[in-house]
């Protein structure tokens, strides 16, 4: 069970959130080729490490929250708004 600190609502239970995937993917420009869009839509890394990801606070303020979580320990290192650069722990890739 995670406790995720929403930047507005404060620490809330995981059940209030919906997982929305990798937060590092950026949409390629409109004129990019098919491979770039295939990459953007489908290809995801599956790291055994720190992961920057989106969680939607569905049961609270209904805002997207950016979360840095470890995929093995589930430790949440940092949370912030979508426009904030994530803070990764020392030694993270």
């Amino acid at each position: 069970m995670h406790r995720i600190r929403c930047p507005f609502c404060g620490a809330r239970d995981e059940t209030e959130f919906a997982y929305r995937g990798d937060a590092t993917k950026r949409r390629p420009p409109d004129d990019a080729d098919e491979d770039a869009f295939f990459d953007y839509v489908y290809r995801r890394a599956n790291p055994k490490d720190w992961h920057v990801e989106w969680w939607h606070h569905t049961g609270g303020c209904r805002r997207l929250v950016k979360v840095v979580r470890h995929t093995v320990t589930h430790e949440v290192h940092w949370t912030g708004w979508p426009d904030q650069p994530p803070s990764l722990p020392d030694g993270a890739p």
Partner: peptide, 10 residues
């Protein structure tokens, strides 16, 4: 005050 879920009701 809070926006939250109570017994899964928003």
């Amino acid at each position: 005050c809070a926006a939250t879920s109570i017994a899964e009701y928003a």
